[in-house]
Design a protein around this nucleic acid. Structure first.
Lengths: 212, 212
DNA sequence: CTTATCTTGTGAAGGATTTCACAAGCTCCG
DNA sequence: CGGAGCTTGTGAAATCCTTCACAAGATAAG
């Protein structure tokens, strides 16, 4: 299978979102041009992205919203549910936890961890916050696929090492550090400071644009 | 001035962070190779990135940590302070607000807004939450440079329209929608769902890597 | 002063991604 | 059934980004 670029995957996620909107609005077919318009890209780009995985459209007609939706869900691995663990029950962790949109998209939070003994045992909805000493055991018992790391910068690398050692192969990191993970583990970073600095650069240099 | 890519700016932010660490550790000079190692890139990439803005190193020696730090701060516009407004005082807004690292980097939160009348008037540290009816006036009075949008998806576009109309030219959006902004306004998105879907793709297709 | 060693800055090469442009397929309508 | 009108899928071209490779500048040691 050929290599798929990071940005292509991002765009697929976006197309999926537009398709869901279109579907909710009762639209039955959609053209590459319309998807492009909503995503701020070009119709050629949309078609190229989709062509990496197959040909899903009908010439002259565009794409069936329902079908393309299914296809992209399949490509992105969203036809199954993923088990997620949240590591760090601070304010950010809490905000992420209550962002119930995840559930709707198949990401199910199965465990929350924190080192602070005063938090351990607190209930967040159905879940009790667990101490970090339980981490390895619970990550395995709950068959966690994805760990979300929302701990302070200093704590992040050790925590990630343990997560990886416990067999988790996908990590979404919110701590403002570059983490090291072994090959075979996928890491994505959300780094708000970096984004702000990007805006600062744009302001200072009077240039436009760039969607992150 | 030549065009600087998004990714180059991201890397500069990273280099800056490493330089701050090195500086705190008392290191006086650093080589492109060392910066590359920490950033997960190559020394040629580091030198290329820096060469877009000038030549800051000494052959045979590397870069003076202190000088390069200053240079990059200058390039990124971090030698001055920026006024930031937070729109949306929900859990995410609260998490962002309490993330005091922003202050340290020159991003000063000058106002917080929310539509919910029950929240208006609450104090967050020094700041009182303001109603959205005050938004235009306060954005201008406080000379806000950057608006952080942390409102629900449906509310985001109208809010952004008002922010833009009030003259703010940089926006960091956390709502999971593609926003439209006019030319001259810089928009960056932090979209957690997109990141999770990227991880899902990687899991489903057994591929590695990709730093966000 | 000369040599050995290191690391920068940068053209040029190579790779990856995006855009172009058009043949081919599908539908609708008369 | 045939022609008009769209829109896809895709090689080829163009653009953008990264890596290579090396001359040149800097230091340190003898």
């Amino acid at each position: 299978m050929k290599k798929i670029s990071e940005s292509a995957v991002r765009r697929l996620s976006l197309y999926l979102r537009f398709l869901q909107e279109a579907s909710a609005a009762g639209t039955e077919t959609i053209s590459s041009g319309e998807l492009a318009r909503r995503g701020g890209t070009t119709s050629a780009q949309v078609r190229k992205d989709l062509s990496l995985f197959g040909s899903f459209g009908k010439r002259g007609m565009g794409y069936s919203v329902r079908e393309l939706l299914r296809e992209i869900q399949g490509i992105l691995g969203l036809t199954r549910r993923w088990n997620v663990a949240l590591v760090g029950a601070g304010k950010l962790g809490s905000a992420l936890f209550s962002y119930r949109d995840f559930e709707a998209r198949g990401f199910q939070i199965r465990a929350v961890f924190d080192v602070d003994p005063r938090k351990v045992g607190d209930r967040w909805g159905e879940l009790a916050i667990r101490g970090d000493d339980e981490m390895e055991r619970v990550l395995q018992a709950e068959q966690v696929d994805i760990a979300i790391v929302a701990v302070p910068a200093e704590a992040a690398q050790p925590v990630v090492d343990r997560i990886v050692a416990a067999g988790v192969r996908s990590i979404l990191n919110f701590a403002p550090v570059r983490l090291r993970v072994p090959k075979g583990v996928t890491l994505r970073n959300v780094d708000v400071t970096l984004e702000l600095e990007g805006l600062s650069f744009a302001l200072a240099n009077g240039r436009e644009a760039a969607v992150g």
